[in-house]
Amino acid sequence: YKIYPYDSLIVTNSISVKLPKDVDRTRLERHLSPEEFQEVFGMSIEEFDRLALWKRNDLKKKALLF
């Protein structure tokens, strides 16, 4: 996945969300650098992957990456 800054990946309720063209809309968190991922989620990507799907989705919603 290509890395993008968190600010360019957050999704708000506005209709005209302009995400970069090559971003996987269903896995926005994968486009964060490991350092920024840790900062946003408070855990590593590996720890995040071990969580239940509902928990990952809940965290993504709170981080505006859903």
Rank of each mutant, 00 (worst) to 15 (best):
Y1T: 13
K2T: 14
K2S: 11
K2E: 12
I3A: 05
I3P: 08
I3L: 06
Y4A: 02
P5C: 04
P5S: 08
P5M: 04
Y6R: 02
Y6L: 05
D7T: 15
D7S: 15
D7N: 14
D7A: 15
S8G: 04
I10L: 08
I10V: 10
V11K: 06
V11Y: 08
V11R: 08
T12V: 11
T12H: 12
T12P: 09
N13L: 08
N13F: 04
N13A: 11
N13Q: 10
N13K: 10
S14R: 11
I15T: 15
V17P: 13
K18R: 13
L19Q: 06
P20C: 04
P20A: 06
K21T: 12
V23F: 03
V23N: 01
V23W: 02
D24K: 05
R25S: 10
R25A: 15
R25D: 07
T26N: 14
T26H: 14
T26L: 12
R27K: 13
L28I: 06
L28A: 03
L28D: 00
E29G: 00
E29V: 01
R30Y: 05
R30H: 04
H31P: 01
H31N: 03
H31Q: 01
H31L: 03
L32N: 00
L32H: 00
S33G: 07
S33M: 05
S33K: 05
P34V: 15
P34R: 12
E35L: 11
E35M: 11
E36I: 06
F37Q: 02
Q38M: 13
E39K: 15
V40A: 05
F41C: 01
F41D: 00
G42D: 09
M43P: 00
M43F: 04
S44M: 10
S44Y: 08
I45W: 09
E46K: 11
E47P: 03
E47G: 06
E47M: 11
F48N: 00
D49P: 01
D49V: 05
R50F: 08
L51K: 05
L51F: 06
L51S: 04
A52F: 06
L53N: 09
L53F: 10
W54Y: 10
W54I: 09
W54D: 14
K55S: 08
K55N: 09
N57T: 11
N57Q: 09
D58P: 02
D58Y: 12
D58S: 11
D58C: 14
L59M: 12
L59G: 01
L59C: 04
L59R: 03
K60I: 03
K60H: 01
K60A: 02
K60L: 04
K60D: 00
K60Q: 02
K61C: 09
K61L: 08
K62D: 08
A63P: 00
A63V: 10
L64E: 06
L65C: 02
